[in-house]
Design a protein around this nucleic acid. Structure first.
Length: 795
DNA sequence: GAGTTTGAAACT
DNA sequence: CAGTTTCAAACTC
């Protein structure tokens, strides 16, 4: 290993290290051409970052020399090609990514977001610099390069820092791909023990000076920025439609990173995820969970897919509602790009190629629409999306589509993952579906929905502008694959859609919030344990159900649908929710979650096989959010943000209660405190930024209920005898505010709880941007109503 | 695939 | 805020 390049490598985007790697010539000769238009993206980052005073001259004007960029791009992918042929797919992927970054100089919101993220994580990165000292010693070249390349970041487990494992990663990690290479893992950065462990594993500690380490970490920081930039460009890989479809459940992650000043119209509110669930992909550019999801895919098969395909409950795709903002800008630039052929390659808008599409001759699964619609969500996220919302499906990477994530997985593996996630027959149908014409797709949509847990609406009268519409509710535009009639929820009616969202939000600030919120009581590992329940025992529906006849054991019940048990917020009668009911103590529920009885499993299975199939999605979505969102987001932020989005709620009391908690949590959960829950301007005002201000609140009911969400059920149930076993009715037909003492207890215990990993998480946060003039869209609506008046009975 | 059931959303 | 209506998904046949 050469000693000298180390510093310069970092200072120069790791270029030199890469160039000295075996096979690096391939990259020098690579046909990857970073378009000049991409420059603004980087410039912004670097310039913004110049305050740190560590921007090199060529960084100040990083694109002055095309070679630099080309080399940079090469460095990002070089280690892949120098490892195994199996990774060849990355080359194509990387190329696609770069090409997708084709911009026309437009400022990319995502860039700011990325920058913000990176900046916000500066502290952690500082710590990471310290960590690097632990590794700088005897790590050989390719290991180093791999670390710099991001593979290192891509792993959350300390074990991976052992020389052997690093070797393995460098040699052929499946996720050692472009996307995964840009992982930023704040969680990892927070682990002092990681450094400790690495020291032990490597057996030789760094002898480099702190200064050198600092230089290195600076370089890495830049590298991260670069990666972020790529990621953001990645995000813009599609038209509105693509973005809409591919929204992962983890959009929230990304939105959380959005600084207040960033225009986030395209990212309505905050996103979720919940899910597409969401989600596993958008986040991939920023969070460990993304990489984890990829790895999980490799290790656990179907889980990967679930990570990418959140189920309805957790998914929230709000952020991408305004795909026109983010998505359209990208799409526009894409459309205007100079290379139609390349665009054609990268864009996945062709619905005839939802699945099994080839990019650069490499077969990849392109999960769009039907499959990703509810990433997020519950967690969805998005959704949808992502799911997003997340899944809730509910319930993100931001800018990386699920498709992109999947691109990191060889086709065969993706296929197996798909098969592992669903019955073979359904898988076959999905494939068949993907191969059908749009016309047939439409007809088949319903089936796809059922089999995949991804939804497309079938609205007839609401014009997809009310929460009746699942697309609208998930914060996404309807697609051609929807079976809706007179649909207005389309980009061409953007203003109208936004207005309706605004109205809906005014009516219910949480209307677009994920339906399922989680208390992170379990580690991702626990939650992902094979055959176990995937959602935490304390996950619950944000508002609670009101079931009368379904006994909360059918999908009529939103709790059941979201895969969570009923809680006190529910007003259900005769609750037989197999996930849990109100009379159940938290301990019992937790026990059940960890060790579901056969009867319970049978119940679930008999009631809805689909739920069972989706569970992995929900899990992945959930734990991912625990992994990254949870790390980044103090509960109170989430709550405040959610409430703030209304602009009218009065939760002053509750907010006060939470303020201290949030601050405390911030210090505990997020060293970079201010990097939390940055919603869209419309949903979270800058005042809330950094917990400096509290929103005006009108009713503490919401907050108290949310608090109750986070309140151990033992506290809630102390006065609620169970009279008929699991059967119960709702003694409280209305939401109840927890006794003050509960809040106090909760608050006082929050510190302990949080330190032990007990976090409250709203999987996806709310709100669409409410930027469009009401009158304008209203006029459009009226006009539309007029057009339809008397014929549709539209409300 | 049509019809029914269900409960959330919207409305009054 | 309660009651009613509307709506679309879930479900059944």
């Amino acid at each position: 290993m050469k000693e000298t390049p180390l510093i310069s490598v970092i200072e120069d985007f790791n270029l030199y290290v890469v160039s000295e790697m075996p096979g690096s010539d391939i990259y020098r000769e690579s046909d990857i051409q970073l378009k000049p238009q991409l420059m603004p993206c980087f410039q912004k980052e670097f310039q913004s970052y110049s305050s740190s005073g560590c921007v090199d001259e060529h960084l100040a004007d990083p694109f002055k020399e095309d070679n630099i960029m080309n080399s940079s791009m090469s460095s990002l992918t070089s280690h892949k090609e120098t490892t195994t042929k199996a990774d060849d797919t990355n080359a194509g992927n990387g190329k696609a990514t770069v090409l997708m970054s084709d911009q026309t100089g437009e400022e990319l919101p995502s860039v700011s977001m990325n920058f913000f993220y990176a900046t916000a994580r500066e502290k952690e990165i500082e710590r990471y610099g310290e960590f690097l000292q632990c590794l700088s010693g005897n790590v050989d070249d390719h290991v180093e390069s791999d670390i710099l390349g991001g593979t290192f970041f891509g792993e959350q487990h300390h074990e991976l820092f052992s020389p052997q494992n690093i070797e393995l990663q460098a040699a052929g990690g499946q996720h050692d791909k472009l996307g995964a290479s840009f992982q930023i893992f704040p969680e990892f950065l927070q682990r002092d023990e990681a450094c400790k462990y690495s020291k032990e594993s490597l057996g030789s500690l760094s002898k480099e000076s702190v200064k050198e380490a600092d230089q290195r970490h600076r370089g890495i920081r830049r590298h991260l920025h670069f990666g972020a930039a790529i990621s953001c460009n990645h995000a813009g890989n599609g038209t509105h439609e693509t973005a809409n479809l591919c929204l992962p459940a983890r959009q929230t992650d990304f939105e959380n990173l959005v600084p207040p000043h960033v225009e986030t119209r395209g990212i309505s509110g905050i996103w979720q995820a919940g899910s597409c669930s969401q989600t596993a992909t958008l986040c991939s550019s920023f969070s460990p969970s993304a990489c984890e999801s990829v790895r999980s895919a490799q290790n656990y098969g179907n889980r990967a897919l679930s990570a990418c395909i959140p189920s309805g409950g957790d998914l929230h795709l709000n952020s991408f509602v305004r795909s026109e903002s983010v998505g359209s800008e990208f799409s526009t630039s894409m459309k205007l790009g100079s290379n139609p052929h390349q665009q054609e390659e990268t864009l996945m808008s062709d619905r005839d190629h939802y699945l099994c599409k080839e990019i650069d001759g490499i077969p990849v699964l392109s999960f769009l629409g039907e499959i990703y619609s509810h990433l997020g969500y519950e967690q969805q996220e998005s959704q949808a999306a992502a799911g997003a919302g997340s899944s809730s499906y509910q319930s993100s990477s931001i800018m990386q589509t699920p498709c992109d994530s999947l691109h990191l997985i060889p086709y065969e593996q993706q296929a197996s993952l798909c098969k592992g996630t669903m019955p073979s027959s359904e898988y076959a149908d999905i494939v068949e579906f993907s191969q059908m014409s749009p016309e047939r797709n439409r007809k088949k949509a319903k089936y796809t929905i059922k089999s995949e847990g991804c939804r497309r609406c079938n609205c007839k009268k609401s014009r997809c502008l009310k929460l009746y519409c699942e697309c609208f509710a998930a914060g996404i535009y309807c697609l051609d694959t929807c079976s809706c009639e007179n649909c207005i929820n389309k980009p061409e009616y953007e203003d109208t859609v936004l207005d309706m969202r605004q109205q809906t939000e005014a009516r219910n600030p949480l209307a677009f919030a994920p339906k399922v919120v989680s208390n992170a009581t379990n580690s991702p590992a626990n939650m992902m344990e094979e055959g176990k329940w995937m959602k935490t025992s304390s996950s619950r529906h944000k508002k609670g159900c009101n079931c009368k006849k379904s006994k909360c054991s059918k999908k009529y019940c939103e709790c059941f649908q979201g895969g969570v048990g009923c809680c006190y917020g529910c007003r259900c009668e005769g609750c037989y929710n197999p996930y849990g009911n109100k009379t159940e103590t938290i301990y019992r529920r937790a026990e059940r979650w960890n060790n579901p009885s056969q009867e319970q499993l049978d119940t679930l299975e008999s009631h809805n096989d689909c739920i069972k199939a989706e569970r992995p999605n929900q899990f992945s979505s959930t734990w991912e959010e625990l992994a990254d969102i949870g790390q980044l987001t103090p509960p109170s932020h989430c709550l405040l943000g959610a409430v703030a989005s209304s602009g009218s709620l009065n939760i002053r009391d509750c907010s006060k209660k939470f303020l201290g908690q949030s601050q405390q949590e911030s210090s505990v959960l997020s060293p970079s405190g201010y990097l939390n829950w940055h919603h869209s301007p419309s949903s979270l005002t800058p005042k809330l930024y950094g917990c400096e201000a509290l929103p005006e609140l009108s009713s503490d009911s919401f907050f108290c209920n949310m608090m109750e969400d986070a309140t151990p059920e033992t506290l809630k149930n102390t006065c609620t005898p169970s009279t008929e076993g699991v059967k119960s009715s709702s003694p409280n037909q209305k939401w109840v505010s927890p006794p003050k003492i509960r809040s106090h207890e909760l608050r006082s215990s929050s510190s302990q709880g949080l330190r032990s990993g007990w976090k409250f998480i709203m999987q996806d946060l709310p709100s669409f941007p409410s930027l469009a003039p009401y009158s304008k869209s209203q006029a459009a609506i009226h006009q539309n109503d007029g057009d339809r008046k008397g014929s549709t009975g539209y409300q």
